[in-house]
Design a protein around this nucleic acid. Structure first.
Lengths: 242, 242
DNA sequence: CGGGACGTTGACGGTCGTCAAAATTAGTGG
DNA sequence: CCACTAATTTTGACGACCGTCAACGTCCCG
């Protein structure tokens, strides 16, 4: 532990440019000052290493400042499932609350930095700042709703629809963060995409190839350019003939 | 609104035999009195009708007292997905918090009764009763973890494994509530099971038939008796040869 | 008792998984 | 900086599993 390292020193939400993504928007100056104490420290996570692991004691939620994560669960017999990909401004660790230990792994897919928010402190502040309380509830509810969408995808969509949904969702979230609407760099392998979408990596690769043939996207390894977003939307939501 | 109806009159958590399922266990007498005010009213839901619907304004969470529900989401082009089945002591409505309106339907699969808990009151009491606050967080976290399990099922299991998982999960939850470990009555159709498991109703039916052939279960319509729970577990988690 | 919802079973086909090999890229150490 | 190995990706051939379509059987509930 080298807390003298400036990277793990306390930092302020009040001056964070991601505040509107992970904090309530309608805070008074006093409340903001209070909130600043929420973040215990920042922590850097090297690519390929874990922020937390299944079985580890739960202490904190983590707001992603930079970088890109995947979360995955594993069954007893070794098969595993990516449950989501998370980027700046999103919060991970919610799974740990119920049993006081984590039930999934959070792995950095690129070098990352997170704000560590001790959960007991979150609960303490939530009792005082109403809008923070409601914000915490919203974040958890949002995760539940997101997972409903994934269940719909896994339960009822074909490979092309899954991949189209995935791409549109990713690019939309990146756009919110100021990136391009049509270009993105995948931080994960085909296998990780497949695990998330309930497909094998070969199927993911083949489906990409089909999109390229059809002129819908351009793919150079992990660099993807969406040429025809309308076509992607049509794949998911085929227009009924009149 | 006929509030003179005894069925919608206020009732007490403190005397409810499901309290340990939907409330924190370590409440003082004073806190319990407070909690009693959480439940605005009870509400009866007839089989086949909805407790709430996608798009409706969110006001309350609902603790199920009796009966059985399914929740389902729908995509724009009409396909839908059962996201869960809920029984006594479980809470529904969490999806509505994030956008102040519900994003799924909750349908009673048998006549049911729920405790209506206005969410603003939950937030208010949560600020005063720490254990209630933590309990609310746990309920939401539990739902997130549950959905992780469903994603694992939908993303990586074959039909037999899905149905085996489903049956063991149902019977385990029923057992917690004092019912048999080996017998259960399905409150949902094959199509609803299929929608939840990401399978077509024919596949569900065929898989049941295979289980019966193999002597693992006895099935008479919706009445299921599990003859060999070990075999069901082996299907999910095949023992590796030494 | 009759009609409609629900469930079962069969035949067939499509989508995606499996296995394999080759191509391309990334990473590592000299 | 380059060579070499490991990791990732692509593509093909084939087959399994599950979906589709269809017909029939069964159980409720009015």
């Amino acid at each position: 532990m080298r807390d003298m390292n400036p990277q793990t020193l306390k930092v302020a939400c009040s001056t964070c440019n991601l505040r509107e993504l992970c904090m309530p928007i309608d805070l008074s100056k006093e409340e903001l000052d209070r909130i600043d104490d929420l973040v215990g420290a920042r922590r850097k996570i090297k690519r390929g290493t874990t922020l937390f692991r299944n079985g580890e004691k739960f202490t904190s939620l983590y707001a992603i400042r930079t970088g890109f994560f995947k979360t995955c669960v594993a069954s007893e017999d070794g098969r595993d499932q990516v449950t989501g990909f998370q980027m700046a401004g999103e919060v991970v660790g919610l799974d740990g609350i119920v049993n006081d230990h984590h039930t999934c792994d959070a792995v950095a897919l690129e070098d990352a930095e997170v704000c560590v928010m001790p959960f007991d402190r979150i609960e303490e502040f939530s009792r005082e700042v109403h809008s923070l309380q409601h914000h915490v509830h919203k974040i958890m509810s949002r995760e539940i709703v997101r997972e409903h969408g994934v269940m719909l995808l896994l339960g009822s969509m074909r490979a092309e629809e899954r991949l189209a949904t995935f791409l549109l969702n990713l690019v939309q979230r990146l756009h919110t963060r100021g990136f391009s609407q049509s270009e993105l760099i995948l931080r994960m392998t085909r296998e990780e995409i497949g695990s998330f979408l309930g497909l094998k990596l070969e199927t993911v690769s083949r489906t990409f190839s089909r999109f390229v043939e059809d002129g819908i996207v351009e793919v150079k390894q992990r660099h993807v350019r969406i040429l025809n977003p309308g076509a992607l939307r049509d794949i998911i939501n085929p227009k009924a003939p009149i």
